[in-house]
Amino acid sequence: MSERVKKPLHILVCIKQVPDTKIIKVNPKTNTLDRSSAPAILNPYDAHAVEEAVRLREVHGGKVTVLSMGPPQAKNAIRKCVEIGADEGILISDRRFAGADTLATSYALYKAIERIQKLEGVDLILCGKHAIDGDTGQTGPGIARRLGISPLTCVNKVAEVNRKEQRIQVHRKVEEGYELIESALPCLLTVEKEINDVSYSPLPNMIRAARYEPSIWTVDDLEDVDIKQLGLKGSPTIVGKMWPPEKSKGATLFEGEAGQQVKDVLGVLLKERELFAGKGGD
């Protein structure tokens, strides 16, 4: 850690390419998601993580690298990060990573981060709050555990980065407000969307991004990998049955005379009577 102080700040951001879930359709025959119905985009939460890293680099100097695990097309999500201002991107892509749940995902990313640490050191790792497809929010804390560093989840502000002492202070959003937390570097943050607004990319970034080719690593580029912990094999969870949630058939409407309407709706509310007895939420 002490030598890190003399080196430029290196921030690593983990990013995922996801289908745009606002558009995705469910195939009614198979009850599975028709991924071709939705364009692949950079996970929106990860855009905030990259933006935060770029802003920290503007203050402290150094470098921002993004890391993604995914199929070759995920290069496009990395290019999007370069547009936001990332300096470099690495894609780990290999059939043997496929079918990973969060445990196997965090293992693969951890192995890649180990290599990056060895090559050039890492001071801070950022992740999004969650990916909008798998939607678990489990990958970030998993990576931190594997690296033996602290995960600080739900971060909505980076209050201070102290390079001299290699410490960081952040606001961690909790139900009643926020916690001010201090941690040693390196550590891992998962960021909330309100941490920043993603700014419009300057033209030079866009030009650079269009031509950018990320480095691609396979399993063979990583050291001491236990193949059994990767992909489907390394995933304790499996997705069983899938079905579309019940679509509302629309409301039962009470129409007509006001007195009767009030009576009708009161009947519905009084079934939940015990709810209204407690203390109010505010």
């Binding site: 879930t21 606002k22 995705i24 909008i132 499996i238 997705v239 899938m242």
Partner: peptide
């Protein structure tokens, strides 16, 4: 999962 578009048993 998928923004509420699907339910899955894990």
């Amino acid at each position: 999962a998928f923004g509420g578009n699907i339910m899955a048993t894990i």
